[in-house]
Design a protein around this nucleic acid. Sequence first.
DNA 1: GCTAAAGTCTACCGAACAGATAGAGTTAAG
DNA 2: CTTAACTCTATCTGTTCGGTAGACTTTAGC
Lengths: 152, 152
Amino acid sequence: MISQKAKYALRALLALAKEGDSLMIGEIAARKNIPRKFLEQILLEMKRHGIVHSRRGKLGGYSLLMPPEKITYGQVLRIIDGPIAPLPCLSRIAYRRCPDCKTEETCEIRRVFARVAESAREVLDRTTIADSLSASFLLDEPEGGAHEMAHL
Amino acid sequence: MISQKAKYALRALLALAKEGDSLMIGEIAARKNIPRKFLEQILLEMKRHGIVHSRRGKLGGYSLLMPPEKITYGQVLRIIDGPIAPLPCLSRIAYRRCPDCKTEETCEIRRVFARVAESAREVLDRTTIADSLSASFLLDEPEGGAHEMAHL
DNA sequence: GCTAAAGTCTACCGAACAGATAGAGTTAAG
DNA sequence: CTTAACTCTATCTGTTCGGTAGACTTTAGC
């Protein structure tokens, strides 16, 4: 399960992308039904990672710093929730050896979850905020190409 | 990330499948490097779900109740860690509406994670304990068929 | 410059969960 | 009837999740 916080982060970015302009925290919170003070923390974090930009004072607000076509779901999830990999020994951003696993290369479990991680990244690192907003993405299923595995 | 507990559960089942016979808790714990008392709870739970069988008293121990070809990773993970779906509104075993999501059908986030869930299930519900033990599975990559997405 | 309205920063908090550990109870073989 | 196994329930410590609080800083406009 992804965290509530990550869901809020994605929604906030979607709101900013849709608006295409600066928005105040309170406005984003209201539109997306997010606790305002909690959203503050989230946006601050997104700012630290160069995803959004902010203006202080009256007429302040947040806007996207990167174009929405460049912001992937994977990027946001890694910032908020940490690694996408289901095992620490499969993480690219925070590799840690499983302390109780003797031989990583022959670990039966690792092999299986490596495939899970791969296909999760396949989706999350290719899907952008802009994709989510575009009408073509709203079709029930993407038609062919990289997504055919979804039909297996 | 899957929990340590789930990892232990899978390892214990692998040990039982490999042995092909009854094993005492202490023996499984020793072979797989699992805290013994913790493993007790895990095996009890697997028993409640009809995965394993136990004998008490001297000469007691645990053995598989289902053939290892029928025990999937998905099954074990759902027992120990709960839903595989990354959002409650995408879970098949424990569906819950996202309380802060107005229109489920048009939720942009849900669409994306539905694809993630689908491909995770694709791997986890098809891979069995027996698969993990078989030599062919030990090849670096499965060759073709359902797994070609792993190369994208 | 003062004030109102916006973002910034740090701390805290209650509930739940993770990863165990403890120990008394039950069963069965020899 | 003792020993060695599984069974059950409780407890514990530390961390994370989801959120709240409040003091502080910046800026626009009068």
